[in-house]
Every structure is written in structure tokens, then in C-alpha cells.
Design a protein around this nucleic acid. Structure first.
Lengths: 113, 113
DNA sequence: GTAAACCATGAACAATGGTCTATTGTTTTT
DNA sequence: AAAAACAATAGACCATTGTTCATGGTTTAC
């Protein structure tokens, strides 16, 4: 799949896809053509971009995502990779708790007005 | 209270406090001295800064906070102000849901490895 | 009364996460 | 074969959220 198709299907712009690739979140194979150097993306990148979008919405940084991707790919030591992910999960849960506290605070401010 | 004391007590740096003030999140009264123009902060700013810190941690933007503060202060129409806050609450809940989904996804990726 | 600590302002700088533009080359469509 | 659509790269640009710096004035402590 070329970048335009991936962009259309994923809802992530070409520029952003290239930006993600520069930052190590996804990788393309060099297409089989000799006359161009168009990127070629295997299908699973679609799923990956979907995850990135959700994760970015949840407040994860590019660096967080790169950590996850790198440990999943490299995965020399899979228990170490699992730990990286568990840490990210903990961060997310902490953030969710924080949100809950702020929601409570705002709800109280509505009641006490 | 002068800015240094507020910074110490709140854990928010002087520079950040001035930045927040420039951006309409807090306001100081001009001190009573004739010889200086030091800012003076009523005590409630301490609570306010605590809220901002939590809210920023929860992923709210400066603009979000400014919306809240402005509608709370201006509050010409209090039902309108309440609506602004309810919208922010909804945004936060949406974000919390998003986090929960990403956590689930990551937890599954740990199980299926 | 002098040094140290504090405060003010404005501007520059920095990191993050993109987005846009210019230029050039390749496909695809007509 | 010409036009339209797509792709690549490099670099400029943008908003957001601060932080740092330079300069200069004010307070406080010794």
C-alpha cells in the first residue's frame, strides 16, 4: 500500500505518516519498483496507525509510542518489553485517576455555585 | 502574597505563574507600595494553582482552563457558565474512556505475546 | 549602606507534534 | 503525449507550554 492509500484508510495525513516514520513509529519497505522510491506499507500499518491515534488521544507522547514499538519489535528480552508496557499502562492509569479527580472537583464546583 | 511566596507554596515556578497570568488564568492586584510594581496575590490563588496543576496533568490545555476561569469570573449568565464546565467534564470523561481502551489494548498485547 | 535576594519586562530560546511549501520526480488518466 | 494526481525530500512555519536571559529597579538582611 502506498502512502496516499494508507492516509485515506487510516485518516492520518501523509505528512503525519512521514513524520511518524521519521520518528520511528512505523516503517515502510522500499517499493519493488526500480524507477521510484515510493514507500510501501504492509497492511498491518493500518492497525498500527489506528492504535497510535487512539493512544495520542489518550495523551501518550510520540516518545511513549516509540518506546512501545521498539521494545515490541526489538524484543530481545521479552520480559523487559513487557515491563516497558506495564509502565506505560501504569502511567495511563495514573492519568485516568487524575482525570477522575479533576472531574470530581469540577462537578463539585457546579453543585456549590 | 508576592510571587516568590506563591511559587514556593504552590510548587509552580515564578515564570510559569507570570505565564499563566499573561494568559488570563490568574490575576494579581497591584501591590499597595508606591515604589514598586510587584504583583500581589490573594490567598485563593494558591488553591487555583493547585487546581491548574492537577488539571494540566489530566490533559487540560491552558485554553480549557481559561475558558473555565473566564466563565466562572464573568459569570454574567451562570447557566451558561455551568454549561461550559459540563462540556469540559464531558471532554475529560471521553478522554478517560479513551485511556481505558488503550489500557485494554496494551493489556491484551501483554497476554497475547 | 552594601550585598544578596527579590521583582518586572520583553525577547529569545526550546521541545513537542505536527503542517505547509517548494522543488523535483513518477504514475496514471485522458 | 500532455495533464492530473501522486510521491519524495528538505526546510520553513505554526501553536502550545513553558524556560532562560538580559537589563534594570526594589527590598531585605547583615
Amino acid at each position: 500500500m502506498r502512502i496516499g492509500e494508507l492516509a485515506d484508510k487510516s485518516g492520518v495525513s501523509r505528512d503525519t505518516i512521514r513524520f511518524y516514520e521519521r520518528n520511528g513509529l512505523i516503517s515502510s519497505t522500499t517499493g519493488e519498483s526500480d524507477t521510484n522510491n515510493y514507500r510501501d506499507y504492509p497492511d498491518h500499518n493500518l492497525e498500527l496507525l489506528g492504535f497510535f491515534t487512539k493512544a495520542r488521544d489518550a495523551g501518550m507522547s510520540i516518545a511513549d509510542l516509540r518506546d512501545i514499538i521498539e521494545t515490541m519489535n526489538g524484543s530481545c528480552d521479552r520480559s523487559e518489553a513487557a515491563q516497558v508496557i506495564r509502565n506505560k499502562i501504569d502511567d495511563l492509569k495514573t492519568r485516568a485517576d487524575q482525570i477522575a479527580r479533576v472531574v470530581t472537583f469540577l462537578e463539585q464546583s457546579l453543585e456549590n455555585r
